[in-house]
């Protein structure tokens, strides 16, 4: 554990909580991609199956359980409690275009050809593209509320901090998880355009982030 890893995890947690509270308080999930949230719930589910097979630390177990609970609660808010506010018309990204290649790749490129490892690899690849339905939705509607933008900022920060964590671990421990690092770099690249928009529009603008 190092400071980059810890702050990355905290930013991830803050992002998930921001989104949950936004939907809970406004009683609306307008502007939120339900598809991205289902993909994230799937990411956590397939990655954290090791909760049943190996114990790493109390921190590790607690964080995994919290991520899982929050992910499923958010999906529940979007598709059940506040489903009337769900904008399925704008949430039109075809997720099968992500799931099929990601599933295929996790069978081809993994650390071990075992069910748990393949599912872990699937979760890593899927996480790197899971935000695309949300970014697609913002592009389609042309704007995002500032709170949605804050959510994306913290998710992006989490990614950037994990990159720093891997650089740190490589230098101090010689540790290098190729699958996680390559997918992580790809994932972080998706946020770059968003970071630019965030800093030029949300911080200077009127609260809403509009695309050019």
């Amino acid at each position: 554990m190092n400071i980059f890893r810890l702050s990355g995890d905290v930013c991830h947690l803050i992002a998930i909580i921001i989104l949950f509270l936004k939907i809970w308080r406004s009683k609306s999930c307008a502007g939120i991609s339900g598809k991205s949230q289902v993909l994230f719930a799937l990411v956590f589910t397939t990655r954290y199956l090791d909760l049943f097979t190996s114990y790493i630390s109390a921190y590790n177990t607690v964080m995994k359980v919290v991520y899982l609970l929050l992910a499923y609660s958010t999906v529940g808010l979007i598709f059940f409690r506040f489903r009337n506010s769900y904008d399925s018309e704008s949430d039109s990204f075809r997720v099968e275009f992500l799931l099929v290649p990601v599933a295929g790749l996790s069978f081809l490129e993994n650390y071990a050809f075992t069910p748990l490892e393949i599912l872990w690899t699937f979760s890593i690849y899927l996480e790197s593209v899971a935000i695309l339905p949300q970014l697609f939705m913002i592009t389609k509607t042309g704007e995002a509320e500032s709170i949605t933008a804050h959510y994306l900022l913290f998710l992006g920060l989490y990614r950037a901090l994990y990159l720093a964590n891997w650089l740190w671990r490589f230098h101090t421990e010689g540790f290098y998880d190729q699958i996680a690092v390559v997918s992580g770099v790809v994932q972080t690249i998706f946020y770059c355009d968003f970071f630019y928009l965030y800093f030029t529009r949300v911080l200077r603008g009127s609260g809403k982030m509009s695309l050019p």
């Binding site: 890893r5 995890d9 991830h12 990655r47 090791d50 190996s54 790493i56 630390s57 590790n60 964080m63 995994k64 991520y67 650390y111 071990a112 490892e117 872990w120 994990y162 964590n165 998880d177 996680a180």
Partner: peptide, 10 residues
């Protein structure tokens, strides 16, 4: 990364 793969990161 051969056997006993330990994924400690979240």
């Amino acid at each position: 990364h051969a056997l006993n793969i330990h994924h400690d990161e979240l």
